[in-house]
Every structure is written in C-alpha cells, then in structure tokens.
Computed example of a mutant assay.
Amino acid sequence: MKLTKTRNGPNTIDTLRREMDHFFDDLVPFSWNREQSGRSLGTWTPNADITENEERYQVMMDMPGMDKNDIKVSYHDGRVSITGERKSEEKDEKDDFIRQERYYGSFYRSFMLPEKVKEDDIKASFEDGVLKVMIPKAEVVKPKSIEVS
C-alpha cells in the first residue's frame, strides 16, 4: 500500500501568489487589494476587460449605478485613461446599515497600449452600466523594397 502525504491548507503556489500580492500592495500604498476587493481603503475600482484584434483594441468596464456624465475617457502618449465618480445615494437618517457592500467615490484606471492608434477615431459608449471604448489601430507603415539597378 502506497502512503501519500496530504496537506491541510494552501499549496505552495497559492502561498507564493498571496505573498507576491502583499509585496506589491506594500510597494504601492493605494493599490488594489485582492483579498479585500479594494475595500480596505474605502474605495472601489471598476473591473476591465481588454481585447485586441487586427483592427482595434477594446476596453470594457463594468460601472453599475453610474451616469455617463460622470465618466471621462482620455488618450495621451499611448495611454488610455478612464476616470469617474460614483456618487452616493441619499440616506434616510432613520435607516441604519446592517451591511454596506456598495462603494462610492472616484476612480482612475490607465492602460498603456503597445501600438500606435488613430487618436481621432477613438469612440466610447456607455449602456446598461458598461463602458465600451473602441480604439482603432493606426495603419502600420510597411518597409518599402527598393530595387537595386
């Protein structure tokens, strides 16, 4: 009969990942804290998906409860920046929170793009609490072959 050693608790990879998260959280005092979903700072940061194909980059961010007038998208030197603020709702003074998981306040997200883009053709739309930013890629200048005579 073969005996195997079992562990109660996280494996080595999980421990390493947690330690690396703590290391980077200590380096940047206002960074996203994965274990507490950013709540240790009383702030929130919307999640983002970034995709790419041959023609464009696309950034999609979930921002439930926000108004499109409270969101700003900018592009400068190869970096797309998205800022905004989710405003708190009016609270009835008679009601006490039993649990509060929704966070309010301002946020800032910035993404560096690896290639040139058509700055004037960047489009952003906001629908059903989702921001979609379409960033078309610039035409790549291909090297011209010169025939030697």
Rank of each mutant, 00 (worst) to 15 (best):
K94I: 09
K87M: 03
T83C: 04
F30G: 06
N69I: 06
K91C: 02
E101Y: 13
N53P: 05
K116V: 08
Y103H: 13
K91N: 03
V59W: 01
V117N: 01
K72N: 10
R109G: 11
G38S: 02
G38Q: 05
Q36V: 11
Q58I: 13
Y75T: 04
F23A: 11
M61F: 00
W44Y: 15
K87T: 10
F24H: 07
E35W: 15
R86K: 15
H76I: 12
E101F: 12
F24I: 05
T51K: 08
T45R: 13
P46K: 04
D62Y: 02
D62I: 09
S37Y: 15
I71L: 06
P29T: 07
M66N: 03
H22P: 01
E52K: 09
L27G: 03
E85I: 12
D21Y: 11
K87Q: 07
K91V: 10
Y75R: 05
D120N: 15
P64F: 04
E55Q: 13
V59S: 03
Y103S: 13
S31V: 05
E35G: 11
Q58K: 13
R56Q: 14
P64Y: 03
I71F: 01
S31P: 03
L113N: 05
P64H: 06
G42L: 02
G105N: 04
D70S: 10
D49L: 12
R17V: 08
E119D: 11
S110L: 02
Q100N: 14
D25P: 01
M66W: 03
D96Q: 11
R34A: 13
G65F: 07
K68L: 08
E35V: 08
S88V: 14
N53M: 00
M61N: 01
P29F: 15
S31N: 03
D70I: 00
D96T: 14
D26H: 07
D21G: 08
D96Y: 08
Q36G: 08
K94L: 14
